[in-house]
């Protein structure tokens, strides 16, 4: 009896050990380039480990049963007439409920840290009409939000391109340039069908919907060039609908901005 329990505990701890080892050492995600990304990766790691424990555990249980309880050639008759075990069934109702509830609360916390539960405010000078309905998006904040002035960009998507309008400089760009470590606030609207704005390295995605503006706020943390991918089927060239986001040092960004700025318009 002791022997049996010993093996059970050994196997369970092995499953846990393997799951934790994989969870901490196998990286399935791309680079982290926004303040969203590490938060997301934290959630991913937790879910990955819990998932591995359950998956490896169940797989071992199934394969072990198939092996241990297989019918030998000389055997006849049935297995034990066990029709259920109420306390066991209660256990595997309650424990998953608790796990699921904890995961839900935790992911709520993650979502809150990403700014998902925040009131969506898009401090855009040109957006005067308060009645305009903003449907959804992520309103991400960083600690030094107040100290820096937000960068406001208007994104319009169409088959099959993104256009980025910098109202302060009164110019439109096909490439999204943003300075590192500053909050960017985007108001997005589609000209035709539904598109989606996705930057895998930022772990953010938001549909761009015709007729309904959506908001996406983020803060890049790493200098570099990342792909912007359209993630909603939008027509034949959907796969080719990509753009780039260039995160650069503030000085580089200002240089680029001033080069493109149209001077003649003074409001």
């Amino acid at each position: 009896m002791l022997n049996k329990n010993f093996y059970l505990i050994l196997i369970i701890s092995l499953v846990f050990a393997i799951s934790f080892w994989i969870g901490f050492n196998v990286n399935l995600l791309p680079a982290e380039a926004s303040i969203n990304a590490p938060i997301y990766d934290e959630l991913f790691k937790i879910l990955f480990i819990i998932g591995l424990i359950i998956f490896i555990g169940m797989t071992i249980a199934v394969i072990y049963s198939l092996f241990k309880f297989r019918k030998r050639n000389d055997q006849i008759g049935d297995g034990i007439a066990l029709e259920g075990n109420l306390s066991l069934e209660i256990v595997w109702t309650i424990i998953p409920s608790i796990i699921v509830l904890l995961i839900g609360l935790y992911s709520y916390n993650i979502y809150d840290r990403m700014g998902g539960m925040k009131e969506l405010n898009h401090n855009h000078e040109m957006m005067s009409s308060n009645t305009e309905k903003i449907w959804a998006g992520i309103s991400q904040t960083s600690d030094n939000e107040i100290s820096i002035n937000n960068l406001s960009i208007e994104v319009s998507a169409m088959q099959f391109a993104f256009l980025f309008n910098y109202p302060k400089g009164n110019f439109i760009s096909g490439e999204l340039h943003v300075p590192v470590d500053q909050k960017v606030s985007m108001k997005m609207e589609s000209k035709d069908v539904i598109h989606a704005f996705w930057v895998p390295e930022f772990r953010i995605k938001q549909d761009i919907i015709p007729g309904q503006p959506t908001i996406l706020n983020f803060t890049p943390t790493k200098v570099g060039k990342y792909p912007i991918i359209c993630a909603e089927l939008c027509g034949p060239y959907h796969g080719g609908m990509r753009a780039s986001i260039i995160v650069e040092e503030e000085s580089d960004y200002n240089e680029w901005f001033n080069k493109n700025k149209k001077q003649e318009v003074n409001l």
């Binding site: 049963s65 008759g77 034990i80």
Partner: peptide, 9 residues
């Protein structure tokens, strides 16, 4: 899985 457990599979 409990159905498999202890059967003659």
């Amino acid at each position: 899985v409990a159905t498999l457990w202890g059967g003659k599979i």
